[in-house]
Design a protein around this nucleic acid. Structure first.
Lengths: 190, 190
DNA sequence: TTCCAACGAGACGGACCGTATCGTCTCGTT
DNA sequence: AACGAGACGATACGGTCCGTCTCGTTGGAA
């Protein structure tokens, strides 16, 4: 179980694998994407994938992170306005099926893979939730969020409903929804 | 593609399959449970499973529904008290790993299987969410939930955070959490 | 220039998939 | 009582994909 020599790693192979993974997932969906399929597309031996990644999820996560943009939290001083902007943007992003389906599958695949779970937390979810918490702390200082509210719970009140509707597809996922949710969240926090 | 004659269906086989499925999932986890494994355990031909169920998810869902208890919504007239009771119970139920892991995995499978998705909605999620909505309607009539609030969004504000924390395992999942969430939800709705 | 590990390719045993028959065991019908 | 339809247990089949294990070949580090 010795680890490979990273200095000799072929960057051509690495890039080809990530590109092939992104393509395959976009084309077939996450579940029907296989390591063998990625290797074939990339013109790469299977072992070259297994040498550097432990699982399909890890490869796909790397491919996703490579083309990801971070969530930016504005701080205009008006929590409700900022919240509306961010929730609208989040809803719009999640409503885009092409990437969205992959993220959904990845998120649920985490359930059977602790290492993948940790990666997703560290590299995707964590930063987003931390940024939100910081914005709420700022709002708490200006009195727009009541004292004594547990901000970890508050963050979930903001994003939990979105994830719920996004994963379960119970109701339409549009701007009106983002605004309705904004209104309720602000009432909960003030 | 003609459908089999349900009147001649063997109830012994049906029960054995559902029992075996529940056992296998409890023992191996959903991902490692296979149709072949269920058939072997149940002492049943694979074809007997494929004759009556379209997928592993469908079998497991049937097995789950068979031993499920419905969420009962009290209506004491005090929304906050009722909400606290229900959220505590929900958190306790979801915190139990044995069944919880299966439900999580089932949700994973929903993403790639529209028929299964519809079944889960109709037979598990739908009734729960509808019951919650009815309780909120009642609270709206007594003035404990403000007029003009979209109750579909309100239901998600109640359960969304729970699902968020349950799936992402970001923070502890205990009674204190249920109570903190109750408090925030009541503020959002009144 | 030499060396050696990463590389592309693909064989391998194994697990399951979903389909297709076997012969057997109920039934309701005649 | 004899028949026929159809569900049953069992099992063979061709596939796909897994993860491991060689092969030569190649290209970066010393």
């Amino acid at each position: 179980m010795r680890s490979p020599d990273a200095s000799r790693r072929s960057d051509r192979a690495r890039t080809a694998i990530l590109t092939a993974a992104a393509e395959a997932v976009a084309e077939l969906g996450y579940a029907k994407t296989s390591i063998e399929g990625i290797a074939g597309r990339a013109g790469v031996g299977k072992q070259t994938i297994y040498r550097w990644w432990p699982s399909k999820g890890a490869v796909v996560l790397d491919a996703l992170v490579a083309e990801q943009v971070d969530l930016e939290w504005p701080d205009s001083g008006d929590l409700e306005a900022d919240l509306r902007l961010v929730l609208r943007a989040t809803v719009a992003e999640f409503a885009d099926e092409s990437q969205s389906a992959t993220l959904r599958a990845l998120m649920l695949d985490m359930q059977n893979d602790a290492a993948l779970s940790e990666q997703v937390h560290t590299r995707m979810l964590g930063p987003q939730l931390a940024a939100t918490k910081r914005r709420l702390e700022s709002a708490q200082r200006t009195g727009q969020v009541a004292e004594g509210i547990d901000l970890d719970v508050a963050v979930e009140v903001v994003f939990g409903p979105i994830y719920h509707r996004w994963i379960l597809r119970t109701h339409p996922f549009d701007e009106a929804y983002a605004d309705a949710l904004t209104a309720l969240a602000v009432r909960a926090l003030r």
